[in-house]
Write a protein that binds this DNA or RNA. Sequence first.
DNA 1: AGTATATGCAACCATTTGGTTTCAGATTAA
DNA 2: TTAATCTGAAACCAAATGGTTGCATATACT
Lengths: 111, 111
Amino acid sequence: MVAYTLSDDAVDRIFKALADRTRRDIVRRTLTQQASISELAREYDMSFAAVQKHVAVLEAADLVARIPKGRERIIQGNPEAIRRAQQLLGHFEEIWRGRIDRLDALLATDN
Amino acid sequence: MVAYTLSDDAVDRIFKALADRTRRDIVRRTLTQQASISELAREYDMSFAAVQKHVAVLEAADLVARIPKGRERIIQGNPEAIRRAQQLLGHFEEIWRGRIDRLDALLATDN
DNA sequence: AGTATATGCAACCATTTGGTTTCAGATTAA
DNA sequence: TTAATCTGAAACCAAATGGTTGCATATACT
């Protein structure tokens, strides 16, 4: 297994990105089916620019990738990032179970 | 197992609450050791009122409970809420694996 | 009773967030 | 070549966020 070291900033970005229902929906969609930003924008009741900004927030958190293809940018959800976020929460549970007492002791460790 | 139905608002609150390092630290601490708001406030380089507000955000997301005890309010982390958040992310993984195609189809279901 | 401590809450402030409209550049299609 | 489409980026705006100080109230201590 790979060792992940997520900075506080990175964790902030991940949870902040997931704290918006439009962005969660974009992740959900693009996990199973890639889509261009235009295609995504048609699904929501907001401007293209607004959707574009949501995608930028998701990309900054590494929750999606933006793959150039001609004049389009194909958006693809990143299941690995979701798994990392899930592991972060798993660490809280381990703390609760008393297995470890400091979160940062685990963030830089294999699992 | 109990069936959880988390509204979009509730999910927003949970991830928003987790998107701040001070609040994550409060959850971490209070999962293993209860503390009054004053005790928590002494741990951070900000005012009592600021910590009080962070605790309010966590309580609104049900990530901690505020238990009155004399003039104090004892803060206790809620491991069940963490587990629910983890399950939310688990649903994304299930979507990715193609087991389900709509997140809301699972949110109102046993697991 | 009087003092110290713990909390709650309001007012205020700067920055961030989530939306908008507008314009420019790149790519594709006719 | 010309027109249509897709993206990027800037300027702007209202509301939310994360901090502050100040004050009131409740409880505990001497």
